[in-house]
């Protein structure tokens, strides 16, 4: 995954400003920034949901829209609530599997992975936030992708859910796959990622290994605040 001089301007606001970075295969990269720093916009540009004003956002060397069967290469969760509340979790996954050309047998597998098999036939409207996060993850895993992109996946999760998510992400990366996880919860990220990409006001502030971004004895939070000049937008 590669971002080159990526810029997105909404009227007078430069949400993403000349951003460049690339992911190292087989690693978990934390994509850090305050609320409104441009993380979600960058992910939308990467995934073809928004068009850049200038620059490139490439996945496996191509624009997302040019990928052949993209769900088999990239799995992504951008929001925790992208479901119709009346539709069951299983039917949500089934519709996505049909649309992506993925065999229906895979649905039971991903439900098993995210531990939602027992609730799969209930309407999503009755799911807890943690269950919705896991259903979103199941959607992303349908195509057995090589790259996983998660936007604030720990938002609203209880400690058990956070622990589960952390183990899942580490396990995914240990299979040689790549994860980009955006977050503003630095303490959580520090326990999960290998590298960090820090952005502030749409601009790149750091792109380094976790142990390189902080000076000796410095916490990730302190390093973040130093790099972003206090962190406020």
């Amino acid at each position: 995954m590669q971002v080159e001089s990526l810029t997105k301007v909404y009227r007078t606001v430069r949400a993403v400003d000349q951003l460049s970075f690339a992911l190292t295969p087989g690693t978990v990269t934390g994509f850090l920034g305050a609320n409104g720093a441009g993380k979600t916009t960058t992910l939308r540009l990467l995934l073809g949901l928004a068009q850049p004003t200038s620059g490139k956002a490439l996945v496996f060397g191509r624009r997302y829209s040019e990928l052949q069967r993209p769900a088999t290469q990239v799995g992504a969760v951008l929001e925790s609530n992208d479901f119709h509340p009346w539709r069951s979790g299983r039917n949500h996954l089934r519709a996505l599997a049909y649309a992506a050309g993925i065999p229906a047998e895979r649905i039971a597998e991903v439900l098993e992975i995210v531990e939602l098999s027992g609730a799969a036939d209930r309407p999503v409207g009755g799911y807890s936030l943690g269950m919705r996060q896991r259903l979103g993850l199941a959607s992303a895993l349908l195509g057995d992708p090589k790259l996983l992109i998660l936007d604030e996946p720990a938002n609203g999760l209880d400690p058990v859910g956070v622990h589960w998510l952390r183990n899942f992400i580490r396990g995914f990366a240990e299979l040689g796959r790549t994860v980009l996880v955006s977050s503003h919860v630095l303490a959580e990220v520090a326990q999960t990622v290998d590298r960090v990409v820090i952005i502030h006001r749409g601009r790149l502030m750091a792109d380094a290994k976790l142990d390189e971004v902080a000076e000796p004895g410095e916490s990730l939070e302190a390093a973040y605040l130093r790099l972003t000049g206090g962190g406020r937008q």
């Binding site: 949901l49 990928l67 929001e79 609530n81 992208d82 949500h92 649309a99």
Partner: peptide
Amino acid sequence: TTEFRHGTIRPLLLATPN
């Protein structure tokens, strides 16, 4: 419009960008 209202347009367009 239901796809936009409930956000399901996002996973749909990720599964099928066309």
